[in-house]
């Protein structure tokens, strides 16, 4: 009796199971495993000795974990270490220069595309964007000849110049989006307040577009750091190679050294992953800007 009245006053509503939510959870778990397990296996392999890695069935967990593979790669007194560190430096140097030059060239262009309406603007903008569409291979042969003609084969200059062009379209597009969002009244106010056009740009607009510049910089840097095809074709001298290409030499020279290769792969990924994690906000914004407007 009391039970029924209680139910009547405060009916216990059985909340239906939200199947969609559960499906989402299961799906995310699957995706997480799909994403993380290969990376985990890379790291696990990198702390195994070569003997431990080459077993069937595999050692699921390394019996005797060792950091030897990393020590070897980072030891400047050994040949492997010397090579690896040089590749690492080359990659860093090329990526950094590409990034800086890219910003210097992209900023004024993006600003002009955002603010000015000059004849040919649309055509140029189209041309710049369309660069993104072309596979590296189409440009490989002629660029190889061009670089040979300019005496840039086997120099980092050839890579920087090439990377610049495939970074530029995206940088210009992204920065243009940022400039579009900076009200033109700010510049007008500055010009009335006594600034020239250039001053208005440098003192008012540039500081406001810092997030955009950071975002595009991450993109150029990661793009240059990861690039393979041009580096593979343009560079044949050992001391010039960048990491993605250099690492392949490890692979062929030490064909069976999987733990060493996994360690090298891990070290190669560290800078971009760290950069991505630190500047994630900008990265995601750069990725989605333009495609998701309004």
């Amino acid at each position: 009796m009391t039970d029924t009245t209680a139910t009547r006053i405060r009916p216990v509503v059985k909340k239906p199971v939200d199947w969609w939510r559960w499906a989402g959870r299961v799906f995310l778990t699957f995706l997480l495993l799909f994403t993380v397990l290969p990376m985990a296996w890379m790291i696990l392999t990198s702390v195994k000795s070569q003997f431990a890695a080459m077993q069937y069935p595999p050692q699921w967990w390394p019996a005797e974990p060792t950091l030897n593979n990393y020590f070897k790669l980072l030891d400047p007194t050994q040949r492997i270490g010397q090579d690896f560190l040089r590749y690492f430096w080359n990659s860093f140097y090329v990526s950094l220069l590409t990034t800086i030059l890219g910003v210097v060239v992209a900023v004024p262009a993006a600003y002009a595309f955002s603010r000015f309406r000059f004849p040919g603007r649309n055509f140029m903008f189209f041309a710049v964007l369309v660069r993104n569409m072309f596979p590296a291979v189409v440009f490989l042969m002629p660029l190889f000849l061009l670089m040979r003609w300019m005496g840039l084969v086997n120099t980092h200059g050839s890579l920087i110049l090439t990377y610049l062009t495939f970074g530029l379209p995206l940088s210009i597009w992204l920065l243009k989006g940022f400039y579009d969002n900076i009200p033109i009244q700010l510049e007008q106010a500055a010009r009335i307040d006594g600034a020239t056009r250039l001053q208005a740009f440098l003192l008012i607009v540039m500081p406001l577009s810092t997030p955009g510049i950071i975002a595009t910089s991450i993109f150029s840097f990661i793009g240059a750091w990861n690039e393979y095809v041009y580096a593979y074709t343009f560079l044949s001298r050992d001391d010039q190679m960048t990491l993605p290409v250099g690492i392949q030499r490890f692979f062929t020279e030490f064909a069976t050294d999987w733990p060493g290769l996994m360690a090298a792969t891990f070290l190669m990924s560290v800078p971009v992953v760290v950069m991505f994690l630190v500047l994630q906000k900008y990265f995601v914004r750069a990725l989605t800007e333009g495609a998701v407007k309004h």
């Binding site: 210097v104 060239v105 262009a109 660069r131 042969m141 002629p142 062009t165």
Partner: peptide, 24 residues
């Protein structure tokens, strides 16, 4: 004056895009 802003980008793109396309 507007073209000055796009000029550097344009030159780079011309050298590394227009020439290869023609050449291919």
């Amino acid at each position: 004056a507007d073209y000055l802003y796009v000029l550097p980008a344009l030159i780079v793109m011309l050298v590394v895009i227009a020439f290869p396309i023609y050449y291919t």
